[in-house]
Amino acid sequence: MRKSVLFIVTFILWLLLTFTLHIQFVITGVIVSLLTAFLFGNMFVKNWNKVFQIKRYLWFLWYLIIFIWECLKANFDVAYRVLHPALPIKPGIVKAKVSLKTDIARTILANSITMTPGTLSVDITGEHIFIHWICIKDENLEVSCQEIVDKFENILARIFE
């Protein structure tokens, strides 16, 4: 069952990439997808029940909206800092708590933090994530560090856990 989920995903991806229903492409796609699913099926889908829960996809759409908005904000933020003659940066590495457990949720969290304004995730060890922050806010440091993580953590917990 776990392998068939990966098979369906890779086969759809193949069909979209070739974008034709010519018989030779479809047969090649079936063979390649079967091979991929057979070799790597155990690595990707840990719990296949989660794949069929509609609520997770709705939360994922909401996550996409927030992510794209943050990504746009981040780009204008970087453009402002780079083009400003005085280079207004106060960089440093800060630390925040993570409560997500599954690997994929932690990966997506680190990627989201990298794409949000002014932050770049450097490492995750156990319960802490280390974030390089381009412009540290001096007052309420711990609270504002935690805000970076919390913005995505609640949504990702609903999607992946």
Binding site: C71, A74, N75, V78, A79, V82, I89, P91, I93, T114, M115, G118, T119, L120, V122, H132, I134
Partner: peptide, 11 residues
Amino acid sequence: VYNRLQAATKC
């Protein structure tokens, strides 16, 4: 390096 990675990645 770290500040440059920020600009490079996001933009």
